[in-house]
Simulated assay, not measured.
Amino acid sequence: MTRIDRKFADLRAEGKKAFVAYVMAGDPDYDSSLDLIKALPAAGVDIIELGQPFTDPMADGPTIQLAGQRALKAGQTLDKTLQMARAFRETDDSTPIVMMGYYNPIYNRGVERFLDDAKDAGIDGLIVVDLPPEEDDELCIPAQNAGLNFIRLATPTTDDKRLPKVLQNTSGFVYYVSITGITGAAAASATDVAPEVARIKASTDLPVIVGFGIRSPETAQEIASVADGAVVGSAIVKLVEEGKSTSEIVAFVKGLAEGAHRA
């Protein structure tokens, strides 16, 4: 049982939905980013998505793209992201960390070495948006064998024929993308999301967490009410871009978490 599995078991026992927060590692710099992720659990964040900056983030909107550029410019590397996870683990051994990004940096490092390093650093799961299920032998299966959850994305265009393929080796949770398009592009709607979540849950026992287009406590609550939890990324990263202090960002995150937990 991974930290992710334990977290969802605990939340179910408490009758609560999950709140997941995305932060770009190294944005605007290593120390500020580390301070922020260390503060997230006390703000009510159940799972941290730690973005690995990449030069060609094709699934991300402008806010996340710019965050990655800032992080790379500040010298963020895969090594530094793993070190950030290790530093977080020095004071928190229970909050799950999911590394989210693209396959190229992992491929360049070597899959076996990367998985050893990720496990050692305290990473619990991976979301790699440019590896389809047809490539599961490349990273997904080795990751599962190493004890890491491999979390897959389902979208509004994932039809009933495609869904079983998406779910077949997924673990930890399913990340449902609430809108068609890039991150930060539109507002999520519980009315649209509810039937899609129900369709996915009819095919899997895994929790279904919904992300993209959630920017307020009210929307977090609405979305979490029809799913197993909500993810917020762009709205948090935007505050980093605006130069808000860690305390200001944490206050915003706390409101979002409270919204999801009220669902």
Rank of each mutant, 00 (worst) to 15 (best):
A251G: 04
E134M: 07
P28L: 01
R86P: 03
S189A: 03
A251M: 00
V111Y: 05
D228L: 07
K201Q: 14
V177M: 00
V226R: 04
S189Y: 09
G26I: 08
G259N: 11
I209Q: 06
L163C: 10
R199M: 08
S32K: 06
I141T: 15
G61W: 11
M100Q: 06
N149H: 14
I249W: 08
T155V: 08
G233S: 05
A188H: 09
M84I: 08
D116G: 13
A235N: 13
V226E: 02
A194E: 07
L115E: 01
S32C: 03
V128R: 10
K16Y: 05
T91H: 15
V128Y: 11
L153Y: 05
L115I: 14
D130T: 14
V208R: 09
P164E: 01
N145M: 12
I37F: 00
P62K: 15
G75A: 01
V98D: 02
T55R: 09
V23Q: 11
L115V: 14
F114M: 07
I106V: 12
I48K: 13
V98F: 07
L153D: 04
L50D: 01
R199D: 03
R113Q: 15
F150C: 01
L131Y: 06
A18E: 10
I97Q: 08
K7S: 12
A202S: 15
I123G: 03
T77Y: 05
L153I: 03
M1G: 14
V174D: 03
A71P: 10
E138Q: 14
N108E: 15
I200G: 03
I141F: 00
G68R: 11
T63R: 02
I48Q: 05
P28V: 05
S33P: 09
T95I: 12
V208A: 03
N145H: 15
A185S: 11
T170D: 04
A13Q: 06
Q221H: 15
G68W: 02
I200D: 01
L115W: 09
D160N: 13
F150L: 02
D228T: 07
D46V: 00
D56R: 10
A224L: 09
P195G: 04
K7F: 08
A121H: 10
A194I: 02
A198W: 12
P28D: 02
L36K: 04
G101R: 10
A25L: 08
S171I: 11
T219Q: 14
E135L: 07
V128W: 12
S178H: 11
G26L: 08
R113E: 12
T81I: 09
V210D: 02
P53L: 03
A42M: 00
V253L: 06
E222K: 15
I200N: 03
P133N: 10
I200C: 02
A146L: 01
A39Q: 04
A39Y: 07
L139T: 13
